Every structure is written in structure tokens, then in C-alpha cells.
Simulated assay, not measured.
Amino acid sequence: MKAMNRNQLVNIMYMSKTGEVTKRRVKIMKITDDTFKAYCFLKQAQRTFKIDRVLAIVPVIRRESEII
């Protein structure tokens, strides 16, 4: 919920229904009881994910590049 409210990108580890685990960077757009809709940068499309298949979620922290 926080990531969606802050318009923040997150990295997720997600297990498909076939058991394949993928790492995806997503922008969460809508959350329902057991799913969420997000823009998936891996697939470059909007996708629906089942919450119980998310293995891990980490916010993307953008750091400014240092100029030397």
C-alpha cells in the first residue's frame, strides 16, 4: 500500500502458477483482496499478480550519481 501511495517502484520475487520464480520491477497501480495490478517493466505491460505468489518485495531506492 505504501509503495502504491508513494508512486514508488518495487522489486518483487514472484512465483508463477507453474513454479517458475522471476524477479520483476513493478509500479503498483491497484490492490484488491487477493491480487494487485501493476505495470511490469520486465514484460513492458500492465499485469495482474496474485498476492500469495509474491515471495519478496523490496522498494527501489534511487540514488543520485556522484560527479567527480
Rank of each mutant, 00 (worst) to 15 (best):
M1S: 14
K2D: 15
K2R: 13
A3M: 05
A3Q: 10
A3H: 08
A3L: 05
M4D: 00
N5E: 14
N5Y: 06
R6G: 03
N7A: 11
N7F: 11
Q8G: 03
L9V: 00
V10G: 07
N11Y: 09
N11A: 05
N11Q: 13
I12P: 01
Y14W: 05
Y14P: 01
Y14V: 02
M15A: 12
M15T: 10
S16W: 12
K17M: 11
T18I: 07
G19A: 09
G19I: 04
G19K: 12
G19D: 08
G19V: 04
E20I: 10
E20R: 13
E20L: 07
E20P: 01
V21F: 11
V21W: 12
T22N: 11
R24E: 06
R25V: 12
R25H: 06
V26Y: 02
V26H: 05
M29F: 02
I31S: 04
I31M: 13
D33I: 04
D33Q: 06
D34I: 12
T35D: 05
T35P: 00
T35S: 04
T35E: 07
F36R: 01
F36G: 02
K37W: 03
A38F: 05
Y39E: 06
Y39K: 12
C40F: 01
C40N: 14
F41K: 15
F41G: 08
L42Y: 09
K43C: 09
K43L: 10
Q44E: 15
A45P: 03
R47A: 06
R47E: 08
T48C: 11
T48F: 12
F49Q: 02
F49K: 00
K50I: 11
K50C: 08
I51W: 06
I51E: 00
I51C: 06
V54E: 05
V54W: 03
L55G: 03
L55I: 15
A56S: 14
I57P: 00
V58L: 04
V58P: 00
V58Q: 13
V58T: 12
V58A: 07
P59V: 03
P59G: 06
V60F: 02
V60Q: 12
I61W: 03
I61T: 09
I61L: 08
R62C: 02
R63D: 08
R63A: 03
E64D: 07
E64Q: 11
E66P: 04
I67E: 11
I67F: 07
I68D: 14
I68P: 15
